[in-house]
Design a protein around this nucleic acid. Structure first.
Length: 370
DNA sequence: TGGACTGCGCATCCGA
DNA sequence: TCGGATGCGC
DNA sequence: GTCCA
C-alpha cells in the first residue's frame, strides 16, 4: 500500500561519461578498513551529514528502509572522509554516494539548504509521522494509520492510550527517558547486578554487555546483554527445547526492583525496562531500555562479535569473509564451496579465532567504532 | 535495467 | 481456535 | 538511493 516511488523531476540522466570514471575510482571503504578514531568528531562535513541524516529519517518513517540505509551508508562514508567536501563530484567518489546525493550536496554547498528537505519539513503529515515513530513500538505503518485518524502528537496518543499495544504503551510512558543516552558508569552498575543474579541462577552461565559499551564508548543508547551456558546448544535451540535462563533472570531482577516493565519476553530474547533504585542520598535515576539474548554455546563468540558491532564494522567484516570464501553470521561461520554453504559449523573459542579464519588482523572492540 | 540491500524473535492481527 | 502473515525492533 | 550482475 505504501506508495511506490515517484521521483519525478529527478531523472538522474545527466553526466554519463564522468559517471563511469567515478565508478572506477570509488574509494571502497572496504579492505582495508578505514580507521576512525573512537572520538571521531573530526567531521569536516557536519552540515552535509546532518541534512542527509534528516533525509534518512524521513525515508525510514515512510517505510523505505533500504533508502534509509542507503542514506546512512553515505553519511558514514562522508564522516570517515578526512577533507572538507567542495563539490558533489568530489563526494561521489565515496562508497555509497551516487548521482542523486551528489546533486543534493551541490545544492547544499551552493544554497546552504535543500529544497526537498524543506518541503518535507513543511509537510504536516510527514512530520507527524516522524513524531509518532519516536515511540518504541510505533513504526511507519502504525504512525501512518494514526495520522490518518487525526492523531498527530504525543499528547494525542495519550488520549487513546488504551487502544495501543502493550509495547507501545510502555514506549509512551517512558517517551522522554528512552531518548536519553545511558552513561557508561550506569551500565557498569547494571552489569554487576545482572551478573550477580545470573551467578545465583547457575554459576556456569556466561554473559557480556555488548553494543557500544563494549566498544568503549562513554554512553550508549541502551543496554544489550548476551547470555550463554555450556548446556544450551545449537541443537537444543533448533529443537526448541526450552532453557529458561531468561525467565529466571527476569524474575530475579524484578525482585530486586531493577526491572520495572516488559516489552517482550520469550525463551531466547527479552526486551524491557530497567532502572537503578534511587535512595534519598543518591541521585535520582531514570528508566533505561535493556535487552537480554540467550545464545547457543557454540554461537557465543559469533553472537558477541555481531552484537558488539558497529553495524558498519560488521558489514565490512562480512564482506571480507565473503572474499575469503566464508559466510559470517550472528550464529556461525561457514565455508562456501562453489557458492554453496557447507553446513558443518566451525567451532571457535574466542573472537580472535574468527578474525584468524578469514585472515584478518584482530580488531579489539574499541577499534570497531566505524 | 531490475533485484539485493541480514533476517530473526516476539506480539499481535487475520483469515480459515 | 489455530497457523500463518505482518509489524516492529535490532 | 546505490551498487552490481
Amino acid at each position: 500500500m505504501a506508495g511506490k516511488r515517484k521521483d519525478k523531476d529527478n531523472s538522474s540522466s545527466d553526466d554519463s561519461s564522468s559517471e563511469d570514471d567515478i565508478k572506477k575510482k570509488k574509494l571502497k571503504t572496504n579492505t582495508p578498513l578505514i580507521k576512525v578514531s573512537v572520538t571521531s568528531n573530526d567531521n569536516k562535513n557536519k552540515q552535509l551529514t546532518d541534512i542527509l541524516t534528516e533525509l534518512s529519517v524521513f525515508e525510514k518513517n515512510k517505510g523505505q528502509v533500504h533508502r534509509f540505509t542507503a542514506y546512512r551508508k553515505a553519511v558514514l562514508s562522508i564522516k570517515a572522509y578526512p577533507h572538507e567536501i567542495k563539490s558533489g563530484l568530489e563526494a561521489q567518489k565515496l562508497d555509497g554516494v551516487g548521482a542523486k546525493i551528489a546533486k543534493k550536496i551541490d545544492e547544499i554547498l551552493k544554497t546552504g539548504d535543500l529544497k526537498k528537505l524543506k518541503s518535507q519539513n513543511q509537510d504536516e503529515t510527514l512530520t507527524a509521522i516522524n513524531q509518532l515513530s519516536r515511540v518504541t513500538g510505533i513504526g511507519p505503518q502504525k504512525a501512518k494509520s494514526l495520522v490518518e485518524e487525526g492523531i498527530k502528537t504525543i499528547d494525542d496518543l495519550k488520549k487513546i492510550k488504551n487502544t495501543l499495544t502493550h509495547h507501545q504503551q510502555i514506549g509512551l510512558k517512558y517517551f522522554s527517558e528512552f531518548e536519553q543516552r545511558v552513561p557508561r558508569k550506569e551500565i557498569e552498575v547494571f552489569e554487576k547486578l545482572v551478573s550477580n543474579s545470573l551467578f545465583s541462577i547457575d554459576p556456569n552461565i556466561i554473559s557480556q554487555v555488548c553494543g557500544s559499551y563494549r566498544r568503549g564508548l562513554e554512553s550508549s543508547g541502551d543496554i544489550d546483554i548476551l547470555i550463554s551456558h555450556p548446556n544450551f546448544t545449537l541443537e537444543m535451540k533448533d529443537k526448541k527445547k526450552t532453557f529458561n535462563i531468561i525467565e529466571k533472570l527476569v524474575e530475579s531482577l524484578k525482585k530486586k526492583h531493577i526491572l520495572i516493565d516488559d516489552l517482550s519476553l520469550g525463551p531466547l530474547k527479552y526486551m524491557g525496562v530497567c532502572k537503578l533504585v534511587s535512595t534519598e542520598i543518591s541521585e535520582q535515576h531514570i528508566a533505561r531500555r535493556i535487552d537480554f539474548k540467550l545464545i547457543p554455546y557454540e554461537s557465543y563468540y559469533f553472537g558477541l562479535l555481531h552484537n558488539t558491532g558497529s553495524d558498519e564494522f560488521n558489514r565490512q567484516m562480512r564482506g571480507i569473509a565473503l572474499k575469503q570464501g566464508f559466510t559470517l553470521s550472528e550464529y556461525s561461520i561457514n565455508k562456501l564451496s562453489k557458492g554453496v554453504k557447507n553446513e558443518t559449523p566451525i567451532l571457535v573459542n574466542s573472537e580472535k579465532e574468527i578474525f584468524d579464519i578469514i585472515g584478518m588482523e584482530y580488531y579489539p572492540p574499541n577499534k570497531r567504532n566505524l
